[in-house]
């Protein structure tokens, strides 16, 4: 019998995944700032401390570097920690442990160890938290061999990919857009995984491929729905994992549609759009292109506080519609 499917929020889906992981494996535990009785800054851990106790839902001091290092050390020696950063921006304080230690330890030691740590990063703009609490730094970590970096865009994927991350023997970094936490969607009960490293075609179309990540997936779907009335059929590829990237799904889609638009919230230059564009330019899909590749990314600025400015510096649905329309009509 199929598992019962309910509507859960993205945050509830993550919480359920963490509870299932802890029920299944006593080595799994949670660490982070104010994840206990407070329930986490975004209420993702919620009441888990009541069910699993303070020894498995550990409030850390405000020590991102040390806390991340403790999680790495615990993972190295047999535990399965899930470490929550309060905001993804605080990864900057812990880069040493993530980049020099977690990512490289297996390699440096010739395969003698593995570091099965999961780190969760509430990311992105749109909450009025301004420049130090709104960044999208996933490409920073995506640049580091040894890490796996994922960006689930739906409650279903948030649960399934977190469970896949916990089962993974290597460090997995999960970037969760803060505006997705309240998004609802169908989520089956019980254990299931969504594979790391596989993109998902969220909508099929023949005229244009939009490769989107995280919250931009929903925005791309909204744009695609609007463009349908104009007779433009958009295919939306949810990248889901940025390292290791599912190149084949993107290549196949571009070969079908002959046009590519990359949409992501992080600063446009030197980001995921550059990588996807270059990957297509190097692939057999290049010969199929009928138009230049277009990137829609964040502005070359920190995230501003003022809500109108804040919206203006990241791609919105009208921006995606306009860019897609121009691409298909050959304006560019």
């Amino acid at each position: 019998m199929d598992a019962m499917v309910r509507e859960l929020s993205y945050a509830q889906a993550i919480q359920e995944a963490m509870a299932i992981a802890m029920d299944m494996d006593e080595r799994v535990f949670l660490m982070g700032e104010d994840i206990g009785v407070y329930g986490g800054a975004f209420q993702v851990t919620g009441d888990l401390v009541e069910r699993y106790g303070a020894e498995r839902v550990i409030d850390t001091p405000i020590s991102e570097l040390g806390g991340a290092g403790v999680a790495v050390g615990a993972a190295l020696t047999g535990m399965r920690p899930i470490f929550e950063f309060q905001f993804s921006d605080f990864a900057t304080l812990a880069m040493e442990q993530i980049v020099n230690q977690a990512a490289k330890m297996r390699f440096m030691l010739g395969g003698e160890v593995s570091v099965p740590v999961v780190m969760r990063f509430p990311a992105g703009s749109g909450t009025g938290a301004a420049a130090q609490h709104s960044q999208s730094l996933e490409a920073w970590l995506g640049h580091v061999p040894g890490l796996k970096v994922i960006q689930p865009a739906t409650p279903y994927d948030a649960k399934g990919m977190l469970l896949a991350a916990v089962a993974d023997p290597d460090p997995v970094m999960i970037f969760e857009h803060k505006l997705l936490y309240k998004m609802k969607g169908p989520v089956p009960e019980g254990y299931y995984t969504v594979p790391i490293g596989k993109a998902d075609i969220r909508r099929e179309g023949r005229d244009l491929t939009i490769v989107a990540t995280s919250i931009m997936v929903q925005k791309a779907l909204d744009a695609a729905a609007a463009l349908e009335s104009e007779g433009i059929e958009v295919e939306v590829v949810d990248l889901r994992t940025i390292r290791p990237m599912d190149k084949q799904t993107v290549i196949d889609s571009v070969k079908k549609t002959s046009r590519l638009l990359c949409v992501y919230e992080a600063v446009k230059t030197l980001g995921i759009g550059a990588e996807v564009s270059a990957m297509i330019a190097e692939s057999e899909a290049f010969d199929y292109l009928d138009a230049p590749i277009v990137r829609l990314g964040g502005a070359e600025t920190p995230i501003p506080y003022n809500p109108e400015l804040e919206k203006a510096v990241v791609p919105q649905v009208p921006d995606i519609i306009a860019a897609a329309r121009d691409l298909v009509k050959g304006v560019r």
Partner: peptide, 29 residues
């Protein structure tokens, strides 16, 4: 690793939080 040496480290202080994590494993397990 077989003899319990989790590794030298090229980053000054890099191994200190890792040791605390290993001690946390010891306590939890």
């Amino acid at each position: 690793v077989g003899k319990g040496n989790l590794g030298a480290n090229g980053i000054v202080g890099g191994g200190i939080p890792i040791a605390v994590g290993a001690a946390l494993s010891s306590k939890m397990m």
